[in-house]
Each structure stands twice: as structure tokens, then as C-alpha cells.
Amino acid sequence: MASVAFTINGQAVTLAAEPNASLLWAVREQIGLTGTKFGCGSGLCGACTLHVNGEAVRSCQTSLQSVAGKRVTTIEGLSANGDHPLQKAWIAEQTPQCGYCQSGQIMKAAELLAKTPKPTREQIVQHMDGNLCRCGAYPRIASAIERASKEG
């Protein structure tokens, strides 16, 4: 079995990788970082969104082998103390309901703010449109992103 070395939230890891291993399940079940969620397994919901080399990707559609030598960041590693501007804004806006989609929402939003620190509402909606929230927390997801972009 091949092994794959990469960094996760700044720490080096080497995992044994079955050919069919997905990044999502490796992160959740092997490494034990369960903030990244399984929603559809087919790239359709965004619950599994994390960063690979700073890009938001859907980990259910990313093979473990493909991240060899790369930097993987999950919701747990987005900030040292859960105080990324988005996380503070998420709390201030009381955004989460069931919360299940929210790690993916925040990681997707973090990608936006990294590239576009002052997005318009349209840019927010366009960027976030693939991340589903069954609780319908969309208004507060959008307003939390706006707040984070203002308050930094």
C-alpha cells in the first residue's frame, strides 16, 4: 500500500493510502478531525469543503493520494483559537442552526475573503452558491461574511 505525506493544519502526517481512499474520510476517520462533514459524497453540497494549498476543495471528491506534498487546512486549523474573523462573525450573526453545513460554509467563505477581502453581496452569493444549507441559514451566512470583511 502506498503512503502519502502531507501537512494538515501545519502538522506533517504520513498516512497509508488505499487506492480508493478519499481525503474526506482520511481526515475524518484516520486523522480524527471531524469538523469536515459528509453530506452527499458526490461534490453536490459543499459540506466537506476544506483547503488544499489555500484553495477550497470538496474533500469527498479529492483522493488522498492527490494531496501528497500539499498543505491541507480544515476548519480546526483555520485559526489557532477559533477566532478567525469569519468565525467571530458567524457567532456574532448567530449563523448556525443545526450547524452541519457550517464548517464547509466557513472554509468556502475563507477562500473568498483571502482573494477578495471586500466582496460585494453578488460576489458572496456567486462564490457561496454551491454550499447547501438545509436549515436555510443563508441570510446569516451572507451577513456574517459581510461582517467579517468589514471587521476583519
Binding site: L33, K37, W90, Q94, P96, Y100
Partner: peptide, 20 residues
């Protein structure tokens, strides 16, 4: 402030699917 929003904004909330 809802007691669960901080955990739900940092990936710390535990759902059944997260249990190991």
C-alpha cells in the same frame, strides 16, 4: 447567544457521524 454557535463555527460540535 446560542450555546452551540461557537462549537458549530469551529468544527467542534459532535454529531453521531463524528463519533469514533
Amino acid at each position: 447567544t446560542r450555546v452551540d454557535v461557537a462549537a458549530k463555527s469551529t468544527g467542534r460540535e459532535t454529531y453521531a457521524i463524528d463519533v469514533r
